[in-house]
């Protein structure tokens, strides 16, 4: 009971203090708002990047062409070997004939041209289409397959894959860096705001100490004040996150520039991001004010 009364009093005091030092509170709320907007954008961007890289990674395929002279039994041997490789998640096998039929279905031109060849003279080759579990190791897997007997050519879009993987990892690192830097700036701002509230209430704190208020009682209002600042600061970013992303998604019909880059669908994505933003706001407010309390309130 007593604890609830004390916490109730702390919350009341914290709100009072936010209102009493309105201009100061507004300044730090705006700073938190700006930071959280950028944090929200960074979170959404990095989650989207993550989403479509995994999508693309799923589609990465190694195409294996066998020698034209390969017999059916030899092809079986190769199949067995591919099956036993660590990084292979699934594969399909197509004979020359199947490849021919597939290509003929795809286009009129191929149909005409390929009709001129029978099985013996066909320029096409038996192929395996291999999917890997981990794109990072696609290169070594391709090498292993290339070294097998009866394999003539292995293709996996070499240059493109390497570049894409390294580009995405560096984009991810940069976003993390920006988010961390912004959170640190916000922390600094909150520490300063709370520091000013503390100095504005120095007399009150002195009297509280004289009449026997415990450290918990003295500290709690300031920590709650930091949390309130964080909470208020996250309102606008949440609105922007929710409506902004929805508008963005609808404007591009869920794809950015090409079918390749697919956006994360807004629900429940925006709610998760809003929750994260609110959580970050409150947590940063709390950590900032505890830091200020520890530093400037020698209790």
């Amino acid at each position: 009971m007593k604890l609830f009364r004390m916490i109730g009093r702390s919350i009341r005091d914290a709100f009072k203090s936010v209102i009493r030092n309105f201009s100061l509170s507004l300044a730090s709320i705006s700073c938190i708002t700006i930071t959280l907007i950028i944090v929200a954008i960074a979170i959404m961007a990095s989650l989207n990047v993550k989403n479509f890289t995994t999508e693309i990674e799923k589609d990465m395929t190694i195409v294996v062409f066998l020698d034209s002279s390969t017999t059916e039994e030899e092809a079986k041997e190769v199949e067995e070997k591919i099956k036993n490789l660590d990084n292979v998640s699934e594969y399909t096998y197509q004979t020359k004939k199947e490849v021919k039929e597939m290509m003929q279905e795809e286009s009129e031109v191929f149909k005409e041209v390929l009709d001129n060849f029978d099985d013996e003279s066909s320029p096409l080759k038996d192929t395996f289409q291999v999917k890997v579990e981990e794109v990072l190791f696609i290169k070594s897997t391709a090498k292993q397959i290339e070294n097998m007997d009866h394999v003539s050519v292995v293709r996996y879009g070499e240059g493109m894959v390497d570049k894409m993987v390294s580009a995405f990892t560096s984009i991810e690192k940069v976003t993390y860096g920006v988010v961390i830097a912004l959170v640190l700036v916000t922390l600094f701002l909150i520490i300063n705001t709370i520091k000013l509230t503390i100095s504005a209430r120095k007399k009150e704190i002195g009297i509280m100490r004289l009449v026997g208020a415990s450290n918990f009682t003295i500290k709690t209002p300031f920590i709650i004040e930091g949390m309130i600042l964080g909470m208020f600061g996250s309102i606008i970013p949440i609105i922007i996150t929710t409506y902004g992303y929805m508008a963005f998604y609808n404007h591009f019909d869920g794809y950015l520039y090409s079918e390749l880059i697919k956006l994360v669908s807004p629900e429940p994505f925006i709610y998760q991001v809003s929750l994260i933003v609110l959580g970050v706001g409150i947590l940063v407010g709390m950590i900032g004010s505890s830091g200020a309390v520890r530093k400037y309130l020698k209790v």
Binding site: K2, R9, K203, G206, M208, G212, T217
Partner: peptide, 23 residues
Amino acid sequence: YRLLPKLTVFENVAFALECLGEK
């Protein structure tokens, strides 16, 4: 004296007990 200027006489005295969480 060390009184809080923004509080009334009653509130100033009550402040001591509020800090202790009394009813």
